[in-house]
């Protein structure tokens, strides 16, 4: 028997990478002094697409008749615990939180190094990331981790099928999709089309409080301190400026000639 969520496997270990990000609705800023994201002064939430990653892991677990474990892995400051709890309340089993001052200001390359180090300490068949974090918007984590771990990269998945020791995805492309296949263990990233994340239930929220949460420092994970953090970053912001918000232009009400009015505007801009 094989469902969209896979055939039977004996106990599959799934790690979901979850990032805490500033709320997209909040005004996001860079700090004047070190030009890094101001994470302290804004409301924070779980990176939206990471909810889909958690959901996909939970679905895979359900399809395996519960014979799987879902571990949340987050790198971030202390307050990222709130986000970890949310993922646990959705139904994940346990969590690892990598938290250390030394990591502050790390860029994507350094983050992938640190996360790969933590992955080395875990057993996993699948690592699932979101396709993109709303703060960095780089969409590179799955590729970076695949390169570092030597495991297959299955990124941009809008559908995932695990069958025995293989995983197959539909990878969203600009004009359709690619079918991509690889043996487990593999590094996966998912797009928001893939599922509809569940809301944590009251029971889930209560249960989350007592689920195992391991906090690691860089030293615990064998991360070399001089390879992470702002001062050692391979790429840095040298300057930034806040652009004045876009000004609203001319607003016109349709009085039967709206189409012509738009055409006039396009002509005035030399577009037509």
């Amino acid at each position: 028997m094989q469902s969209a969520y896979g055939g039977r496997r004996t106990s599959m270990n799934i790690v979901v990478l979850v990032k805490q990000v500033p709320d997209t609705w909040a005004e996001r800023k860079l700090k004047a002094d070190d030009k890094t994201l101001d994470r302290a002064s804004v409301d924070v939430v779980m990176n939206e697409i990471d909810e889909y990653a958690v959901e996909e892991a939970l679905k895979l677990k359900e399809a395996a008749g519960g014979e799987a474990s879902v571990t949340i892995l987050t790198m971030g400051p202390d307050r990222a615990v709130e986000t970890i709890r949310k993922a646990l309340s959705m139904g994940a089993d346990k969590a690892v939180h990598l938290s250390d001052e030394a990591l502050a200001g790390s860029d994507a390359i350094q983050t992938s190094y640190a996360i790969a180090k933590v992955l080395d300490t875990l057993e996993y068949d699948l690592v699932i990331c979101g396709s993109e974090a709303t703060d960095s918007r780089m969409s590179v984590m799955a590729a970076l981790l695949a390169e570092r771990t030597g495991k297959p990269q299955l990124s941009g998945a809008r559908k995932v099928t695990v069958d025995g020791g293989n995983v197959k995805i539909e990878r969203q492309t600009d004009n359709g999709y690619d079918v991509v296949e690889a043996p487990l263990p593999a590094i996966l990233s998912v797009v928001e089309k893939i599922n509809e994340p569940r809301y944590p239930s009251f029971k889930g929220i209560m249960a989350a409080k007592s689920k195992p949460l391991t906090t690691l420092t860089t030293a615990d994970a064998g991360i070399e301190a001089d390879k992470v953090g702002l001062a050692n970053a391979p790429s840095q912001v040298v300057e930034f400026s806040n652009k004045p918000p876009r000004q609203a232009g001319q607003i016109v009400k349709d009085e039967g000639d709206g189409g012509a009015k738009v055409a006039d505007f396009l002509a005035s801009q030399k577009i037509i």
């Binding site: 876009r246 609203a248 232009g249 001319q250 607003i251 016109v252 009400k253 349709d254 039967g256 000639d257 709206g258 189409g259 012509a260 009015k261 738009v262 055409a263 505007f265 396009l266 002509a267 037509i272």
Partner: peptide
């Protein structure tokens, strides 16, 4: 409308076909 350089308040089913026609005409 907060970020539009030009905003047209109206029913798209009237405005858009007329706009298409206008562009054709001007071309």
């Amino acid at each position: 409308f907060e970020l539009a350089d030009f905003g047209l308040v109206g029913d798209l089913f009237n405005v858009v076909p007329q706009l298409t026609e206008e562009i054709e005409k001007r071309k």
